[in-house]
Design a binder for these strands. Structure first.
Lengths: 153, 153
DNA sequence: TATGAAAAACCACGATG
DNA sequence: CATCGTGGTTTTTCATA
C-alpha cells in the first residue's frame, strides 16, 4: 500500500491540479505518454488516494461572498469534551472553510467566508453562542495576492 | 454582464463544488432538471466566470508535503516598489499557496506548504533573502479539523 | 427527445528495459 | 516483471438539432 509516485506521475498531477477538465488525449500529449498508460496511472492514484477529489472552484465575490476572514482563537480550558463540541460546531457551520489547530500561542485559526462585515458579525455571534472560547480576534482579508490549492510538486 | 444566479444555479454549483466528476445525467437527476437545461446553465456560468476552474485536489501528506504553515508578516515601509517586489516573489515561490493582505496590526498572511520544519527553514531563508520585512512569525498547523474550498451557498 | 461525434473505460498482446 | 505502446471493443457522455 505504499504507492510510489515517480516523475511521470508528478507530471500528470501537475496538470490535473491546475486543470482537471482536459481529456485523456490532451493530457497524455502534454506529459508525453500514451493515453492508456496515463489512464492506468490516474486510476492507480485515484484508488490509492493520491488524487482525493475533483472539484469546481467558484467565484466567491460573484456569489455574494466577498469577505474572507481569519479568526484567531485562544481556548481557555483543554478538556476533551470541549474539543468534541468544537469539532461538531465547526462541521455544522458552512461559513468555516478551514479550522486548524496551531502551534504557538494561538490555539486555533479559522478560515471563514462571508458576505460582508455585517454578515461576519452574524457569524461571530452564532459561533460564540455555540462554543466557549477564551479569546477571539478576527482579521479581514483586504486583498488576495495569491490563492491556490495547487501543491508545490 | 450581471449574470443573475438563481436557486437552480445554486443547486448545480453546490454539487459541482463538492464533486465535479459527475456526469451531466447524474447531476441533472440530483438537482431535478433536464440534462440539457443543466448543460446550458453550466456553460453559461463557465463563460460568465462564476465557475472559475475545475481542479484535482491531491493528498499533500502522501506527496511528501506534510506541513502547512501560516506566516504572519509585518512590513516596515509602505512604498509601491516594495509591493511590486513582494508580489513577484510570491508569484515565483510555489510553496506559497496563499498571500493575503489583512486588516489590523499584521500586514500580510502567507499560507505555505512544505515538507517539514527543516523544509520550512529553507523556505524561510529563501523568502527573507528576496524581500525585506520588518517582522515575520510562523505558526505551524498541527491538525486540520476542517479544510475545504466549498463556499457556503 | 433523438442523434452523431467524442471521450472514457476497459482488455489483450507483444515490446522494452 | 513492471510498465510501456498499440490497437481494439464497449459503454458513456457530450453537445447540439
Amino acid at each position: 500500500m505504499d504507492l510510489v509516485v515517480d516523475e511521470m506521475d508528478l507530471r500528470i498531477l501537475r496538470v490535473l491540479q491546475a486543470d482537471a477538465t482536459q481529456s485523456l488525449d490532451t493530457l497524455s500529449e502534454q506529459v508525453a505518454l500514451s493515453r492508456n498508460a496515463c489512464w492506468r496511472r490516474i486510476r492507480r492514484m485515484e484508488e490509492g488516494g493520491i488524487i482525493r477529489e475533483r472539484v469546481a472552484h467558484l467565484d466567491a465575490a460573484r456569489l455574494g461572498l466577498g469577505l474572507s476572514v481569519l479568526v484567531m482563537i485562544r481556548v481557555g480550558t483543554h478538556d476533551p469534551a470541549w474539543l468534541t463540541r468544537f469539532q461538531s460546531v465547526v462541521a455544522a457551520m458552512p461559513e468555516i472553510q478551514g479550522a486548524h489547530r496551531m502551534t504557538g500561542d494561538l490555539d486555533y485559526v479559522l478560515r471563514v467566508r462571508v458576505a460582508d462585515v455585517a454578515d461576519y458579525d452574524r457569524f461571530y455571534k452564532a459561533l460564540i453562542g455555540r462554543v466557549d472560547m477564551a479569546d477571539i480576534s478576527a482579521s479581514f482579508v483586504m486583498e488576495d495576492i495569491k490563492d491556490t490549492t495547487a501543491l508545490p510538486i
